[in-house]
Design a binder for these strands. Structure first.
Lengths: 234, 234
DNA sequence: TAGTGGTCTAGACCACCTG
DNA sequence: AGGTGGTCTAGACCACTAG
C-alpha cells in the first residue's frame, strides 16, 4: 500500500486538523512551534506557516508571537457566506430575473433606526428607494433602500426604473467599509402585498450598510419571500 | 509629507483594491501578471502572489493559470460570520447563561425535511432533543436537535439535563463536513410558548448539520427569540 | 530579553491550461 | 508549446510580547 507523502501545505493542514479533531492536541493546548513542525514534516518553515495560517483562518487555532500556537477552546465558529447579487443569483439558476421600481422619494427623513445606522444628522439629505426583484415573474425580494445624497449626489438623476439602485451602486460607488446584518421580521402589510404573501409572514432580511471614508453611502434592507434561505458548507 | 512605502503584501493588496475600485482596472479586464507587478512594486513575485491570493479570496478577481488574472465581473461579496456558541456569546456580554432540557425522546422518526437532510433511511435510529437557552433568565433560543444514534451511540446515556447536547457534541464528536443554513420562520405555538413570545412571531433560525465520513451525526435548528440578529463587517 | 510567529527574498520547479 | 499562477525552499530580518 502506498501512502501519500506529506509535503504540500494542504497535506500539513489536513494533518494538523486531524490531530486537533482526534484530540491528540486538546483544546487550549500549546502545539509545537513552526520550526519543530517543519523538522517533523521534513519541509521548510514557510510551508508549515502557510498551513497554520489557513487553519487559524478557519478558527481552529489561536496564534500569538512569543506565546505560540494553541488549539482554540471553542471550535466550529467561522463560516464564509457568499452574499448574493440578486440578478446573478437568479440567472445562475437558469431563471428569469426582472426588476420593478415601486417608488423613489427624495427629501424624506429615514426612520430612527436607519438614521442612527447611517450616522445621519439633520443636515443630511436622503433618497428613499423601494423596489421589487422577481424570479420567473414571481416576487422574490423587496429592496428597501436609503441613500445619502451628500455622498452620492449623482444617483438622484439616474433613472432607477430599469436598473436597480443596487446595481448602479455596485458599479459606481466605492466603499471602504461595509456591514452586513441578518435578521427575521414579520411582513408589514405593504411588504406582504409586494411579496404576494400574508401579513405577518416571517421574512429573512439581509441588511447592508456601506461607507466611504467615514461617510455613510447607503443602507439597504433586502426582504426575501418566505422559503428563502442562505447556506454554506465546509 | 511622508508617504508610506509600498512593500508589504498588505500594501500591495490595498493598491490592487484601489485600482479595481477606482475602475483603473475594469470588470472583466486582464491585469498585469505577477512578474510584471513585482517589477513595478519593486518586490519579490511571492509577495505579489500573497497579495493577489488575498484579493482573490475576497472575490474581487479570478485567477487561472495561463489565462492570467481578471477583475471579477460581479464583485461577489464574501462575508465571514462567527457562529455563536450560545453559552459563550451570552457570557461574553457579561450576562448569565442558563440551560434547560425540555424533553429528550429516543426512537422517533424525524420529520421528512430533517430526515432528508440527514440522508436518513428507515433503519436509522434517532434521538430528539428539545431544549432552551436563557440569557439572564429570559428565553434566548430554542434548540431543536436530531442525533443519529448509529453514529454517536454514547450520547443516549449522557444526562442532558445540565449540559446542552451542543456542548457535549462539540467536545466529543468529530466531523468532517458541516453545513450551516440561515432562515426565518413563523413561531409555532410551542416555540412561541418556549420563547415567551407570540405564535407567528418571526424567528431567526440557524440550522446546522454535521457529518463524519459521510454519515450524518446531527442536525440542529437554533430558533432565536425576536430581536436577534447576526452581524459582520469588513 | 529572548522566543515565537509574520514576512520578505531570490530562485526554482511544476501543474495547468489556452492558443 | 509556452505562459501563467501555485508552491516549495533556505535563509534572513523583524514585530510582538511573555516572562
Amino acid at each position: 500500500m502506498n501512502y501519500p507523502a506529506i509535503n504540500s501545505w494542504q497535506d500539513i493542514q489536513s494533518e494538523i486538523l486531524e490531530r486537533i479533531q482526534s484530540r491528540q492536541w486538546k483544546p487550549g493546548e500549546l502545539i509545537p512551534n513552526e520550526a519543530d513542525l517543519a523538522r517533523e514534516f521534513g519541509c521548510a518553515r514557510s510551508t508549515v506557516n502557510r498551513a497554520l495560517q489557513a487553519v487559524a483562518d478557519q478558527g481552529w487555532i489561536d496564534r500569538r508571537r512569543k506565546a505560540g500556537t494553541r488549539v482554540a477552546l471553542h471550535p466550529i465558529r467561522r463560516a464564509t457566506l457568499d452574499i448574493p447579487i440578486l440578478r446573478r443569483e437568479i440567472e445562475l439558476k437558469g431563471q428569469a430575473y426582472s426588476y420593478e421600481l415601486v417608488r423613489k422619494v427624495e427629501g424624506r427623513t429615514p426612520p430612527p433606526r436607519v438614521l442612527e445606522q447611517m450616522d445621519g444628522d439633520a443636515s443630511s439629505s436622503f433618497l428613499h428607494v423601494l423596489a421589487r426583484h422577481f424570479c420567473d415573474k414571481k416576487p422574490y425580494a423587496v429592496e428597501d433602500r436609503w441613500i445619502n445624497l451628500n455622498a452620492v449626489p449623482e444617483i438622484a438623476d439616474v433613472a432607477l426604473e430599469s436598473q436597480s439602485a443596487n446595481e448602479w451602486l455596485v458599479h459606481n460607488a466605492r466603499f471602504t467599509k461595509a456591514e452586513i446584518e441578518f435578521r427575521a421580521v414579520n411582513a408589514s402589510k405593504e411588504q406582504a402585498r409586494l411579496l404576494g404573501t400574508d401579513t405577518g409572514s416571517a421574512l429573512f432580511v439581509i441588511d447592508r450598510g456601506t461607507w466611504f471614508e467615514g461617510a455613510a453611502i447607503t443602507r439597504v434592507d433586502l426582504l426575501f419571500a418566505p422559503g428563502y434561505s442562505i447556506k454554506t458548507s465546509f
